[in-house]
Design a protein around this nucleic acid. Sequence first.
DNA 1: GGTAATTTGTCCGTATGTATT
DNA 2: CAATACATACGGACAAATTAC
Lengths: 232, 232
Amino acid sequence: MRDKTPIWKAIANALRDDLVQGRYVQGDKIPTEASLADRFGVNRHTVRHALSHLIEEGLLRSRRGSGVFVTAQPTEYPIGTRVRFHENLLAAGRIPDKKVLSVEVRQPSEGEKAALKGTERVCAYHGLSRADGQPIALFESVFPLDRLPGLDLAFQEVSSVTEALKRVGVTDFTRASTHLTAIMATATHALHLHISEGSPVLRTTNLNVDPEGTPIEYGRTYFASERVTLTV
Amino acid sequence: MRDKTPIWKAIANALRDDLVQGRYVQGDKIPTEASLADRFGVNRHTVRHALSHLIEEGLLRSRRGSGVFVTAQPTEYPIGTRVRFHENLLAAGRIPDKKVLSVEVRQPSEGEKAALKGTERVCAYHGLSRADGQPIALFESVFPLDRLPGLDLAFQEVSSVTEALKRVGVTDFTRASTHLTAIMATATHALHLHISEGSPVLRTTNLNVDPEGTPIEYGRTYFASERVTLTV
DNA sequence: GGTAATTTGTCCGTATGTATT
DNA sequence: CAATACATACGGACAAATTAC
C-alpha cells in the first residue's frame, strides 16, 4: 500500500481540511511558509507548491512581506478545476443541504455515452442543492457503472458524491471541463427551484475525471440565477 | 526603465504570442522544457513556472514522458484570469471583429465609483464583439480617467483595449474577479445581438487590475447565450 | 521616522522518480 | 533495455514588500 500521492498534494489537502473545518476563518493569517515547512517536515518550496494550488482555488491569498490569508467570499459560488459543493458553501458561511430526488440505473443516452467515453450502464443521480434551506441548484449526474461497480448501492448509504466515489475506489478527481450557458427555466426547473417558468437559469455542464484522466462523472447543474453569482 | 516583469511571466507571454500567432497549432508538441530553458537562457524551473501558468489558462497540456501539447477548443470562449477577446477568438479559429458604439467621458455611477475605488471622471467604452461577422457580445467598460489620463484620446486611434491601455502606460493587467449571472435580454441587447427580447443573456461583470492591484477597468459583457459557450 | 527583522517572490542548481518513446 | 521528457523534492541565494521596534 505505497503512497502515490505527492507530498505537496497531501499538504494542500490537509490545509484545505483546516479551512473547511473552520480552524482558520476568513481574514485569518495562516502560519508562515517556513513554519508550515517545519511542521510538515518538508522544504519550503514544497509548501509553496501546495499553497499556490489553494490560491488558484481561491481559498487563500498571499501578500508579499505580510503573509498568507484566508479569503472566503460570502454567497458567492466559486468555479474551478476542483469544485466541492459542500465545501464551497461552508466557506461562504452558509449551511449546505442536499436533497436526493432519485438514483437510478439505466442505459446512457448518446450524449452521455460519448462524454463518458463509452459505457453500457450508468448510474443517474438527480438532486437539489440548497443553502440555508433555499433551493440553489438542480443537478443531474451520470456515472459509468461499468467502471464504478457498486456506486448505485453506495448512494443508498451516503448522499455525498465525493464520499460515494470513495467507497468504490475513487479517492480523487478533478474537473476536466466546465461549460456554461443560459437557458429558460422549464416547468421542472421552476418547480424545484421555486422560480417562475421562463426565468433565466444558468446551466453548467461538467466532466469529472480521475487522476488517470478517465471520465467518471458527467453532470449538468441548473442554477437559479437570481439567487446565485458564479465566481470564476 | 528597469524591467520589473518577472522572467517567467515574460516567457509565458512570449509563448502565448506564439500560440496566438499560430506558430503552434492544436495538437502540436511544443519544444521540451530543456530546450526552452536553453533558448531563453534560464533554468528549467523558470520555464516550468511559465508553462504551469499556460496550462492553468487551458492553452497547454502536459503529458509525463511525452511532452507539452497545445490544446485549443474550437468555438469555445475560455474565461480565466487573463482574458483577451481578440486572442481567444483567434485561437478558436474565428475572425474577431469589434464595433465601437460609443466612447464618452462622464461622471461614474455609484457602483462604478465603488468598483474602481474612487475616481471623478470615467471613460465609458461601449461596443459590440463579433466573430465571423456574427454578433457575440455587447460590452460596456469604464476606466478611471483620473488614473489613466489620455485614454479617451487613445480610443480614437485604436479600438483594442489592450493597445489603448498600453498607450497610457498600462503594459500588463489581470482579471481580479469575474462574476456571472443570467438575465433576460432588454430591447437594447436584442437589437445589437440580434436576439429576441426576453431570451436569456449571460452577463459577466469583471474587474481588471494592474500588476499593483489598482483597478483600471470595470466592465460588463452581455453574451448571446444561444451563440456562445463559456468555458471555465 | 528609520532601521532591522520578517515574510513572500523569484531564480538558480541538483537529484531522483515515473511515464513514454 | 535505453534514452527521453515531465514530475517531484530538496537546497541555497537574493529581491521586494511589509511589519516591528
